[in-house]
Design a protein around this nucleic acid. Structure first.
Lengths: 359, 359
DNA sequence: CTGAAAGCGCTTACAG
DNA sequence: CTGAAAGCGCTTACAG
């Protein structure tokens, strides 16, 4: 005998049995009608009676019981190291939710805080709950090793890639972004005095917030820039390093040092918007105007870019599209495993114009 | 007979039955040992055998089955209209996850997009999954009507309040924030030329992004400001309205109009950081320096505040603390229902100094 | 066309 | 001290 009385849980939640009783049919019949199965033929009258009974009782099937029976939970998890950490997460989550929404699927939000042991515990917990799939996300675009437990469920990598070839991943098209930035400057007439701001100092592969990871974004953006400039018969005038993190202070001191060194850039390509804002400040301190004296372009497309004057022209991270695609790929199980690269659109501001010398 | 073979689901997930077989005991014994129940006395030897068998088989209990049996799922949901919409969500979510993390509870992330019918469907879906509780959040601080379905589970309101007295809610202490802002200016020596920037135009109760809601934040911040100034024997010199949304452009045009009208403010209290940045720009256009000519203080404590020079002094929304407290209250079921107000700390920048006249 | 029964993997009173 | 059995609320082959 079971000690729990009905009243102790969910106050009289209606069960399938009660619907069957009210409709005067078997429980199987109710299940078939409500799940819209047509392989059994039930009389139209029976169907109607069942539906009415369910409606009148306000019946809603217990999803836990359904999951236990079918092994399908109608849930998906987003496991990452970024959730509570960065504001970029938001747009990605929005994209994920958009896709899931149509599929009537709920989302578990899980933050591993970058700790492998915590991550393992959480993955285990999700698998124990029969999640239908997992989106495994990284705060920064990088190469990861797929956790063993992840393979217990269908999964898609978001903003990261693995070296395993059987893996589906979604990342921004960083090479294309580099090309876009360089092309924007070339079109405006810049050519020989274009500097890149944001490489790591010699011997360093990542700033404080990189945990020692080598960011794919940096390598690939530079590759795109170099290729576009080479195709135009020119090259970067140089690469300025940023000590520490890619923030406003880092950008300011890097560009201040650059200007002090006697370099006379016509344009700066900044590794992200914060560094771009730092560049604005250093240029202002040097009495140089944007874009009249120096053009500035950056990457990210963050709210920072539109908070300054002139608005910073930026090649935008397609967070929402990334999230949306990752969720879609997780749901469409027939997609062949491969890396999907999502284009990064140019978000034009007012920080790029023709170089001074050619006016 | 059941058609599904073992191999079709979770590839040989180990069950309690298998642990019992390997340990040579009954399933009950395994359950008792693994759940650490001491009301039955099992021999130390039995316990050890069970634990070893579980360990060797890599046993992890099926949470779905557990939930069906016990009615407790070890999950909580955050239902709100803000999730994918605003970057403030992040810190709140971080706070929520911090609290949940220790309680070994997983989080469902649900975005109602502000649509009642979608919200109802999602709430139903959560209840069908036996969530242990729901945090119901609002993007902007406001008064809401509690959805009927919400009462099917323990719940806490986050960043909103209801008129029902049996409700637990967590909101920022907006009145205190107003006091803090006014006091900061008073301490610096400002007195009779303090303006507030950000009331709605006459007859309007909300900008485009307010969906017609009256934001509690505005009313309460003003109340705090008025009280603090009154206590010092003075009052606001005036309140400048912002047409449309509280963004940079809105702040800029509002302050430009204010200055054009001949007002000579010694300090501006801006309704949020974006409006504060707009104020910076309008002041600059008018040839006025911050803080030498005009001091500026705002509310939010967003990344925008630290991206400008001088950094904008701001009374910060305690997003993370709000989320953390909401989750704690949901888990600690004995707390009496009431409204909890979380203090808003001052985030000092360089935008407040003594007024020009008293130098 | 319909219904009785097994089973998903657990927990827990109850009888030994 | 231990084990057999009921039951959580569903789905679904199978027999009528």
């Amino acid at each position: 005998m079971d000690g729990r009385s009905r009243g102790q849980r969910g106050e009289g939640r209606v069960t399938l049995t009660e619907v069957a009783e009210r409709a005067g049919v078997s429980r199987s019949a109710v299940s078939f009608v409500l799940n819209g199965r047509t392989d059994l033929r039930l009389s139209a009258d029976t169907s109607a009676r069942v539906r009415r009974a369910a409606e009148e009782l306000g019946y809603s099937p217990n999803a836990t019981a359904k999951t236990l029976r079918t092994g399908k939970s109608g849930t998906v998890a987003l496991v990452s190291d970024f959730i509570g950490t960065t504001s970029v997460a938001n747009s990605m989550v929005r994209g994920v939710l958009e896709s899931l929404h149509d599929a009537d699927t709920l989302l578990y939000m899980v933050d591993s805080q970058g700790e492998p042991s915590l991550e393992e515990r959480l993955l285990r917990s999700l698998i124990d709950r029969d999640v239908d799939g997992i989106i495994y996300g990284s705060m920064f675009t990088r190469t990861i090793a797929v956790p063993t437990l992840l393979r217990n469920a269908p999964f898609v990598l978001l903003n990261c890639v693995s070296e395993d070839s059987d893996t589906t991943a979604v990342i921004p098209d960083e090479v294309g972004a580099g090309t876009t930035a360089a092309t924007a400057l070339l079109s405006a007439g810049h050519r020989d005095r274009i500097w890149f701001v944001g490489v790591f100092p010699p011997g360093i592969t990542g700033g404080g917030s990189w945990h020692g990871w080598s960011p794919l974004a940096l390598t690939e953006r530079l590759r795109g820039i170099d290729a576009a400039l080479a195709a135009a018969g020119t090259a970067l005038a140089g690469r300025a390093s940023v000590d520490g993190d890619w923030d406003v202070a880092g950008g300011r001191s890097s560009v201040a040092k650059l200007l002090a060194s006697g370099a006379a850039p016509s344009a700066l390509i900044c590794v992200n918007d914060a560094v771009g804002l730092g560049a604005y400040q250093a240029l202002q301190d040097a009495g140089l105007r944007v874009p009249d004296d120096v053009s500035v372009i950056a990457f990210d497309g963050s709210p920072l870019a539109t908070a300054v004057r002139p608005a910073l022209t930026s090649v935008a991270l397609p967070h929402e599209a990334l999230g949306r695609l990752a969720a879609q790929l997780l749901l469409d199980r027939e997609a062949a495993p491969r890396i999907h690269r999502v284009p990064m659109p140019l978000a034009p501001g007012g920080s790029v114009s023709a170089p001074r010398s050619v006016r």
